[in-house]
Design a protein around this nucleic acid. Structure first.
Length: 257
DNA sequence: ATGGCTTTAAAATAAAGA
């Protein structure tokens, strides 16, 4: 089965591209981020028309996450993360679907750093670590998929110099991501592609796509019970080059049934 | 050295992204 993550950067603006991608690549499960849509304006009928059940956690203007499943309805486990009741950003949704635990994650960007947005990013990562640890304790096949807004290593960015002051690759951001992995989560893309450039994002600015100036920030972390079933992982790069594309490309894993 | 683009919200600009 194929599980994908796709930061759509506005589900209304991206709807033709999203429906086309679902039809052409037929992921069993698709985790979406940056819906930029309230709960009420989520295009449920179009998603159903494409053959997918869905749950979502929307927000007007920005953020927003969803989990789509081919032919079935995901069973919601929770929306949002514990530990900061005043946090009203829609960045996390978790479900049971097709025998897997799946989370769709939109981790805070954190720029500019230092500053309150970076502090919020690090607090959010700590809260994610706590939830991820609880999921591991259940010993179930699980996939934490999403836009982590973390460039894990210098090999995951087109230019270390250009990005050195960015929140995405600060030592604190990387340490928090490593802590998550060291709990027992497997970074699926790096397992299948141990070295080299595997970009998932190209900035709209500075002709990022044309220069192939990208970085790797969309990740699928597998619990041991899911990692044992890992067959392949890759990026649907081609969709970044299409008309009215998101600045992220769909990123996916396949697991043995 | 800096900004260069895109989406949303909302009515002209501003926030947010990364």
């Amino acid at each position: 089965m194929k599980i994908a993550t796709y930061n759509v950067n506005g589900i209304k603006a991206r709807l033709p591209r999203l429906l086309e991608w679902l039809d052409e690549t037929k992921p069993d499960i698709a985790c979406l981020q940056e819906l930029k849509s309230s709960d009420e304006t989520f295009p449920e009928a179009d998603i159903r028309g494409a053959g997918y059940g869905a749950i979502w956690h929307g927000q007007k203007g920005f953020n927003g996450v969803a989990i789509l499943a081919r032919g079935v309805d995901p069973v919601e486990i929770q929306k949002g993360l514990d530990g900061e009741p005043e946090d009203d950003h829609s960045r996390y949704i978790e479900a049971d679907v097709m025998g897997l635990r799946v989370a769709s994650i939109y981790l805070p960007n954190g720029n500019p750093q230092p500053g309150p947005k970076f502090d919020y990013k690090l607090r959010w990562m700590k809260r994610l670590q706590e939830r991820a640890s609880a999921i591991l304790a259940e010993e179930v096949p699980a996939v934490l998929a999403g836009d982590y807004n973390v460039i894990p290593t210098d090999e995951d960015v087109f230019s270390v110099q250009a990005m050195q002051d960015d929140a995405l690759m600060q030592p604190e951001s990387r340490a928090a991501f490593r802590t998550l992995c060291y709990q027992g989560w497997t970074d699926a893309i790096r397992t299948r592609h141990p070295t080299g450039q595997v970009w998932t994002f190209w900035d709209y600015q500075m002709r990022g796509w044309e220069r192939d100036a990208g970085f790797r920030i969309d990740h699928l972390l597998l619990s041991p019970q899911a990692a044992d079933r890992l067959v392949d992982a890759n990026v649907d790069r081609e969709y970044r080059g299409r008309e009215k594309a998101s600045d992220h490309a769909p990123t996916w894993v396949t697991l043995r049934d």
